[in-house]
Amino acid sequence: MKILVVDDSRIMRTIVKNSLLQNNSALYSFLEADNGVDAFNILEREHVDLLLVDWNMPHLNGLDLVKELRILPKYKNLPIIMITSEAAKYNVIEAVKAGVNDYLVKPVDDKKLLLKIEQVMSIN
């Protein structure tokens, strides 16, 4: 499964990757971006099975990236999980309306992340 991890914090990207690799290092491969613009460019040239995206990032934030992707038919069914510090209910609702499949609040629990990925991928 090829996962694009988008977060402006390199440490957070590493934490997310490590938590998945610890579970099953053979199952996952990763691409990384530190903002929405770079993430969009990667998606345009690489096949990606799952997008894990932060909300607050420079240039193009995660919410706007999701909105832009969902406008395009080819990304309509791309599984997207938002991983963010934004814990308010109105943020969750906004992200779901924008088109995320699921939502996790940082700091992320490894087991929860795995469970969400399994759920999202099984539906898609």
């Binding site: 607050n56 510090s85 934004e86 814990a87 308010a88 209910k89 943020n91 609040v105 940082k106």
Partner: peptide
């Protein structure tokens, strides 16, 4: 600080 501020919004 991002996580603290974001979590506190809850």
């Amino acid at each position: 600080v991002n996580i603290i501020a974001g979590n506190a919004k809850k």
